[in-house]
């Protein structure tokens, strides 16, 4: 193997764009929502399911899923859980502060191929963050898609994200929305139980239903089992994987699963591609 180096057109890969925070909302004790504007209000140009590398000089960089739909123009949204040094500092930022943005990176949901299909969304915990990008895309292109069914599960009512969206989804005649919490509170009137308890009761048009699943690693195994019992064909399942994408451009090696770099081939995978990938689920 020998490559003519001088013929390769190389790219600068690691310079961020300095973007401005235009709105901030606190969802829970751990999660905050940010609206972010690129220089000149330029569109991010992402697909639902893609991620960006968010950085603060001095604190470093981390991969964060875009939570707004590409149909939203002028700015994009992130929902960030405070888990480390960088995210702790991000949580301290307010409107007018700036962050570094690289991306969007990876493969998102192939929304074009979903056209005409029913869309079943299964989101656990902060898995709802990248899925909201897909949900809003479908809502904004409602006539292109069939039923929109959203299953959302959280550990407890205090951890539910997007209060405004949840109200909207509940109210909409166009959305079949089911929510559950692992552990309820005295005030909680809804379903209690893990997210898989919502699956058996669904009435689905099987060959015509696309399922998008995002959640913590432990959730996939059980959701996939439930979907199998429900006879949803593997070809109709898409899921998104969390890994340590340090560079986002397929070089640093941290997100690798077998031959696949999650930052390039994922984070959204068509389940048949993933099924035989060891270490993936």
């Amino acid at each position: 193997m020998s490559i003519a180096i001088s013929d390769v057109k190389s790219q600068e890969l690691y310079c961020p764009e300095i973007a401005k925070i235009t709105a901030v909302k606190r969802f829970t004790e751990k999660e905050k929502w940010f609206d972010i504007e690129l220089p000149g209000g330029r569109s991010l140009g992402h697909q639902p399911g893609q991620f960006v590398q968010v950085s603060l000089f001095g604190a470093g960089e981390a991969p964060i899923s875009v939570t707004s739909s590409p149909t939203k123009k002028g700015s994009f949204e992130l929902c960030i859980r405070e888990v480390g040094m960088l995210t702790k500092l991000l949580h301290k930022l307010d409107v007018g502060s700036t962050v570094g943005i690289r991306g969007p990176y990876g493969k998102g949901f192939d929304v074009k191929s979903f056209k005409g299909k029913d869309i079943l969304i299964i989101g656990g915990g902060i898995g709802i963050v990248p899925l909201r990008s897909l949900i809003n895309y479908v809502i904004d292109n409602r006539k292109d898609y069939g039923r929109l069914i959203i299953l959302y599960g959280a550990k407890n009512p205090d951890e539910l994200l997007y209060p405004d969206d949840l109200k909207l989804w509940k109210k909409s005649n166009d959305i079949e929305y089911h929510i559950t919490v692992d552990q309820g509170t005295p005030e909680w009137k809804g379903n209690t139980g893990v997210i898989t308890t919502l699956i058996p009761g669904l009435d689905l048009d099987l060959p015509n239903t696309i399922t998008a699943v995002v959640g913590p690693p432990i959730m996939y195994k059980f959701v996939l089992m439930s979907l199998k019992t429900k006879r949803i064909p593997d070809e109709n399942i898409y899921l998104s994987l969390e890994r340590r994408m340090k560079c986002g451009v397929g070089k640093c090696g941290h997100c690798q699963i077998n031959h696949s770099y999650v930052c390039q081939d994922g984070p959204v995978y068509h389940y048949p591609e993933l099924k035989h990938l060891q270490e993936a689920i």
Binding site: S2, S10, Q11, L13, Y14, K251, Q264
Partner: peptide, 18 residues
């Protein structure tokens, strides 16, 4: 030569290639 492949394929990386 193998590293040349790794840094040229996909996103050809300026840092290495320069």
């Amino acid at each position: 030569l193998k590293l040349d492949y790794n840094f040229s394929q996909g996103n050809p990386e300026e840092n290495y290639l320069q």
